[in-house]
């Protein structure tokens, strides 16, 4: 089979002035007479493309081509809601004389991303049992604000007082059990030490103990390892007929920079060509002008997903997708086992 072309109209989702067309795929058995569209692993493997586009310490952009939207969406949802992380769950407030109420302060603590590898911790099995060194990480936050001596006439609270700002960097890990040797040189700590938790004035103090536990975004958004994970379909622009010279600048300017270029054709005439449709925002600006009617067709490739993932910091961005796929495969195994039971003649 020849490699599939982006110009194949069957792969196009049409972007029309007032609506989108051809949204659902028709490549299922029995739709096209005489064509075999039964699911075939060999063909799926041939058509599947996963290619990394951009990787930074916190973000990841990759293309996933040749899968149904249900698979791409499952991956996105697993990333957001089912890849586990560790976050503060229980807070024991010894004292808090700051202006912030205990429950507000504790809620804020829960949202702090913690640099703890969730793969090295287990889910807490029994919420009524005591904490174990395998399922709980303890942090202490003990801060007291005092006046700095010899600062008369000073107006900046940061120079006038000590610890007038309480930061996440003040959370101190308290190793328990085997944790000290297990996490030597990768001590649990907040991902960002510079998150402002609360402000204090002289005489005020905060003294509390935090218990961090493993959980998933399905339970609470604070456990979500991404901020956020999304995909879009690859834009594909088709120039149906040449754009007249006098309209070429306007045509180029109807798209974001870099999408359309002007190049000389074989006869030396300048022509509009699609340079990089990935950069198109699909604003449909070009469809507003009568001079471009029927000259251009805006589409998206139905099975070409451009994933954008930003890690909160618990995982490296390149580790997130394999973790999500592992979880997805476990779900499939669970369904498979259930089906085996359902159709087992012995039972």
């Amino acid at each position: 089979m020849p490699p599939r072309s982006n110009d194949d109209p069957r792969r196009h989702v049409q972007i029309l002035p007032e609506r989108v067309g051809n949204v659902s795929g028709n490549d299922f058995p029995g739709h096209y007479p005489g064509e075999d569209h039964s699911w075939n692993l060999k063909r799926f493997k041939e058509n599947l493309i996963v290619s990394l586009q951009r990787l930074t310490p916190s973000t990841l952009e990759f293309d996933l081509v040749g899968v149904d939207a249900s698979i791409a969406n499952a991956l996105r949802r697993v990333l957001i809601a089912e890849v586990p992380t560790v976050a503060i769950e229980d807070v024991y407030v010894w004292n808090n004389t700051s202006i912030m109420q205990d429950e507000v302060l504790c809620h804020r603590l829960g949202l702090v991303p913690l640099k703890i590898d969730p793969r090295e911790m287990i889910f807490r099995e029994n919420p009524n049992a005591g904490a174990l060194d395998t399922d709980t990480v303890v942090f202490q936050l003990r801060v007291k604000c005092d006046r700095q001596p010899g600062t008369q006439g000073e107006t900046d609270p940061k120079r006038k007082y000590w610890d007038s700002d309480v930061y996440t960097g003040m959370l101190e890990w308290e190793p328990a059990g085997a944790q000290k040797t297990k996490w030597k040189r990768k001590e649990p700590k907040p991902v960002n030490p510079d998150i402002l938790l609360c402000k204090l004035r002289p005489g005020q103090l905060i003294d509390l103990t935090c218990f961090a536990r493993k959980g998933t975004g399905a339970d609470h958004a604070k456990f979500s390892p991404v901020a956020t994970a999304s995909y879009r379909l690859l834009p594909h622009i088709i120039i149906r007929s040449p754009i007249p010279l006098e309209h070429q600048q306007k045509f180029v300017q109807s798209f974001p920079p870099g999408v359309i270029g002007i190049e000389k054709d074989k006869r030396g005439q300048p022509q509009c060509v699609v340079k990089n449709s990935r950069r198109d925002t699909v604003s449909r600006e070009v469809l507003r002008h009568a001079e471009f009617e029927d000259k251009v067709q805006l589409t998206r490739i139905r099975d070409h997903f451009i994933f954008n993932i930003e890690s909160v910091g618990q995982y490296r961005p390149e580790d997130l997708v394999p973790e999500a796929i592992k979880i997805l495969l476990n779900k499939i195994s669970a369904v498979e086992a259930g089906l085996d039971k359902l159709f087992d003649p012995e039972v």
């Binding site: 229980d90 024991y92 504790c106």
Partner: peptide, 13 residues
């Protein structure tokens, strides 16, 4: 009367 030093449990939610 300042707040007394006594433990109170909260859920970080």
């Amino acid at each position: 009367k300042p707040r007394t030093y006594r433990i109170v449990q909260f859920e970080a939610r």
